[in-house]
Write a protein that binds this DNA or RNA. Structure first.
Lengths: 158, 158
DNA sequence: CTTCGTTTGCAAGTTTGTTTCGTCTGGAGC
DNA sequence: GCTCCAGACGAAACAAACTTGCAAACGAAG
């Protein structure tokens, strides 16, 4: 994370491609954006160092590994002191079943995305995380029936 | 998606690595799991064909490309007929600002994860998607103050 | 006009991914 | 028990991709 990220049109086009498939050869990317492969490589390297590209990962189908249930949880806490919030963040971040955790404004304080193999696992999780934590005022659960659209891609044309 | 996905301990270890960094050389993976590089390559290929690995993508920092606001939206619809639900799914899936969309049970029907550069863009989005759609009964918005944990990784130890 | 800094393309060098091939193991059928 | 066959493995050869060095083009500042 050295430089303030300033991205030109080339960078944005490259990002758009890598967000869809980061196994695309640099030579192919170069043809798509009208740049040589080394130029593409240097830009990718720079964006990686600058933190624009946070990670390169394989997306695994949850159902294929037995994590067939996706849940949303709105969590409301009692005390919002810095220490309590930080403790909650750490606990959520450290829980592998929690795929995503956001600290939000509104009627809830945290929103979680959870994946588990069977409901019993979620029940166990609620006991451990919520009922076992006396700073949790209440939580509401939504069960996903259909994962209509799932991704972390962001709009890059800017 | 040919075979029914049957994953052994090797496959799961490989998946765990690729979920964190899919640029890891196959030789390195092989050393980590006690397998030769070609064996790793064959397993990755098989899992990709079987749909266990859905995609290989770069994760881009939303803030770096100007999408600094993340929002959650609970949407409640009026009519839940199949046609209305399918129409809604299609509309949400086709909206680039909507990163994730789930059809859920509970007090809401859809949960959306949205990223936009500034609040005005979200306001425009609500006008277009919600106020401009007379099947939307109501919606609730949560603004993310902190992206505590973001990812699509799933527990793979099975 | 010159200089410095940046970025590019090309070409060589290095690393990584892929294919080939021979071997081994486990199971079905004789 | 024996043979045969299918599947999976590792070693090595091979192909493709990535990475680096270097000279040239371009722009901004002096």
């Amino acid at each position: 994370m050295h430089h303030p990220p300033r991205l030109d049109a080339f960078d944005r086009k490259i990002l758009a491609i890598l967000q869809q498939d980061n196994t695309t050869p640099q030579r192919t990317i170069g043809e798509a954006v009208n740049l040589s492969a080394p130029a593409v490589q240097r830009r990718i390297k720079r964006m990686t160092e600058d933190g624009v590209i946070r990670a390169n990962v394989a997306i695994v189908d949850p159902a294929a590994v037995g994590q067939s249930i996706t849940l949303f949880v709105e969590v409301e806490v009692i005390s919002e002191t810095a220490e309590h919030i930080e403790a909650a963040k750490r606990a959520f971040a450290a829980t592998p079943e929690i795929q995503q955790c956001y600290y939000v404004t509104g009627e809830a304080d945290f929103i979680l995305v959870v994946t588990v193999p069977v409901m019993a696992d979620y029940e166990a999780l609620t006991r451990r995380l919520f009922f076992g934590n006396n700073n949790v005022k209440r939580f509401r659960t939504f069960v996903a029936m259909d994962r209509v659209k799932v991704g972390l891609g962001v709009v890059v044309d800017g």
